[in-house]
């Protein structure tokens, strides 16, 4: 029973690589980067974080450690507060009028919730890629140059635009049409443009909120390959509904669910392979096996 249930996602992953269990256990997607076994360095630490919309508590008492140069996946059923939590890390939810949060989020030893911290400055170091690609209604070049410009970048913008587009694996597609609208690209290309735009400001952490949910399978795969490439230099936190994606692409998985009070909480976190093949908690097992959610 147990084996059968936990096989489902693994079998899916098998189509993309060698023996899935082996791959997951020994070689996190992307290859040479630090593995989860080595004592990891943590970039972001959430300590007892709770999130509220008005009187409603959406997320309660979350503790998560995000390892450097790794991909951390947040999975869980709809409405369990994954996106809320993600949008708290770069203080994006500060824009929601009734929103407030408690606890601490440490970035390099500084608490992002501290009074003197400016959310704008936080977002310069913690970038974000959204569910639906949202390029600006400007040229491709201007889309990438926007972030560096607002952050007072003094170097050669053309070079930076090119490097960013190359890193986002988009350069070859667009190098002849940098003056065209960012919105004229295909969905997958738009999302890679948004990733290029994000890395152009050289953040330490990139948050991805279901970045592939609006894309076709081919584009999804391209984005996943890109993530594996990007984690050499960046730390990535991704919210995903797609368990296969979490299993394929992430190093660490955090499973969240909703309590009786409809507040989301973390059930279990650990190396992706362990969460998917050998979950410690029944709730996790039910979810990853597809019995719930």
């Amino acid at each position: 029973m147990n084996t059968q249930l936990s096989e489902a996602p693994v079998r899916e992953a098998a189509t993309n690589g060698p023996g899935p269990a082996i791959r997951l256990a020994t070689l996190p997607a992307g290859g040479a980067a630090p593995t989860v076994d080595a004592a990891p360095e943590y970039v972001v630490e959430l300590r007892d974080v709770s999130c509220y919309y008005g009187a409603f508590r959406a997320v309660r008492n979350v503790d998560i450690k995000v390892a450097k140069n790794a991909i951390t996946a947040l999975i869980g059923p709809s409405g369990c507060g994954k996106s809320t939590l993600l949008r708290t890390i770069n203080r994006m939810n500060d824009l929601v009028p009734s929103y407030r949060s408690e606890g601490q989020i440490m970035l390099d030893g500084q608490d992002l919730f501290a009074k003197e911290v400016d959310p704008v400055a936080v977002r310069r170091r913690v970038g974000m890629v959204f569910q639906k690609p949202n390029p600006f209604p400007k040229t491709i070049w201007e889309n990438v140059a926007f972030g560096p410009k607002v952050n007072g970048y003094k170097g050669n913008l053309n070079e930076l635009v090119e490097t960013s587009l190359r890193r986002a694996a988009l350069w070859d597609d667009v190098k002849d049409k940098l003056k065209q609208s960012g919105m004229s690209l295909s969905g997958g290309q738009q999302q890679r443009l948004c990733i290029a735009r994000t890395i152009a400001v050289n953040p330490e952490v990139i948050l991805m909120d279901e970045p592939c949910s609006a894309l076709d399978p081919r584009s999804t795969l391209q984005i996943e390959e890109l993530m594996a490439e990007l984690k050499r230099e960046y730390t990535i936190v991704i919210v995903t509904h797609n368990m296969q994606q979490a299993a394929r692409a992430s190093d660490t998985t955090v499973f969240m669910t909703m309590g009786e009070d409809r507040a989301g909480f973390v059930v279990e976190q650990g190396p992706t392979a362990q969460i998917f093949t050998n979950p410690r908690n029944q709730l996790t097992e039910d979810y990853v096996s597809g019995r719930f959610g």
Partner: peptide
């Protein structure tokens, strides 16, 4: 999404308005 896109890049409110929303 346009507003959030600009904010996520570290734009201030005015930079967001001038660079993204106004165009």
């Amino acid at each position: 999404a346009q507003r959030e896109g600009a904010y996520a890049l570290g734009a201030t409110r005015w930079q967001m308005v001038r660079g993204s929303i106004f165009p």
